[in-house]
Write a protein that binds this DNA or RNA. Sequence first.
DNA 1: GTCTATAAATGGATAGAC
DNA 2: GTCTATCCATTTATAGAC
Lengths: 219, 219
Amino acid sequence: MTQAPAHHRGTRSRDAILDSAADLMSRHGYAATSISMVSAACGLPVSSIYWHFGSKDGIYVAVLERARTVLLAALPPADVPGADVAQRLDTFLVEVADAFQRHPHGVKLLLGLGTVQQDASAAAVAEVRRYRDALVAWARDAVSSVFSLRDRPEVADELARFTLRTASGTAVARWFEPDTVLETGPLRVALLALAAHHGVPVRGVPGGDAPPRGITTRE
Amino acid sequence: MTQAPAHHRGTRSRDAILDSAADLMSRHGYAATSISMVSAACGLPVSSIYWHFGSKDGIYVAVLERARTVLLAALPPADVPGADVAQRLDTFLVEVADAFQRHPHGVKLLLGLGTVQQDASAAAVAEVRRYRDALVAWARDAVSSVFSLRDRPEVADELARFTLRTASGTAVARWFEPDTVLETGPLRVALLALAAHHGVPVRGVPGGDAPPRGITTRE
DNA sequence: GTCTATAAATGGATAGAC
DNA sequence: GTCTATCCATTTATAGAC
């Protein structure tokens, strides 16, 4: 086990630190997470942590950066496949709910920023903004693809904002009730109504019929 | 000025401390707010703060309690007036957006809990839960009144959840873009569609017409 | 009720041997 | 790259005069 090359032990330790830090920071927030807590959680001494990341801010930035790349890699391509709006919308919703379920850390980490914002490192603020911007861009492209909105960017923006706000609101709710899931049923109805309200043609979607399998409604 | 009775100076100081603490905690979060910061902000020494509240937790609990009573007092009665659904819905949305605009602290304080949750005082956790429960109950009663849902509690629950998630998601967005407002236009369309989807009669509401004055759309 | 002063603990961060 | 030991600032909280 100790046969592994030095740099392997290094990156392993780095990842272990990031794992512990991400877990603690997403649960307690940035300010409430101390280096000694991270040290205790991953088993490495504080000086190793400082050797890898330089400062507490450095850890936060690295945690955010990894969370962002992992989440974006997990998100489906923004070019949603499907013959008509109904198919693409269902695919989109299932994938969003899935990513939301599998990556509960994301939003919590972003919210952890609330405790840094004003004062702390410009690097952390920039990284948070990058994270958030990437999500917004993805959502805009995805709904644009679902509803064929290449020539109606304002509508795409509105639908994307609406989707993201529902998702982050649900993340807040999960704060209190851990087993809260993203309710894609109502979201589906809402998105279709918004599209229709803006005169977007939604061929193949019968008004507000029962959602197909894989869509979450409550009871 | 120093003529005021002792207990007046007392409650005044108490309020001043609460003002400063609420401001700081909603901006930086619970963990990142120190007693000395509060002391510097309100001008009273730390020992006075401890005399009034006993502990840091005690301050947080008091801040939450006051925020809750203030917000609930500011919310319109859950019995929304209006002749038909359209009127009541518009009244409801305007009032919600108004309260949302005037009390930007609420959600941030609730999220500050994330930094306490596990370990800290049961009192703080209980107070946060009370805050949140009061909001949920109010929203359920209000939408129930708007759409006359006394005999469809599940539908009222769904609409209330949906409304609150949109609102808290918007609060999160405001985290990044301070001048974000609650977009009642899309929310109106969504709520009407959801009601219709559940077969709730919405007399006097033409499909998805242009929203009346006072309803916020973007550009 | 308010102040000064301080105790006791913990936080972030570094030094230097290995 | 990892470890032990440590510096220094800040934190929560208290003591006791006024």
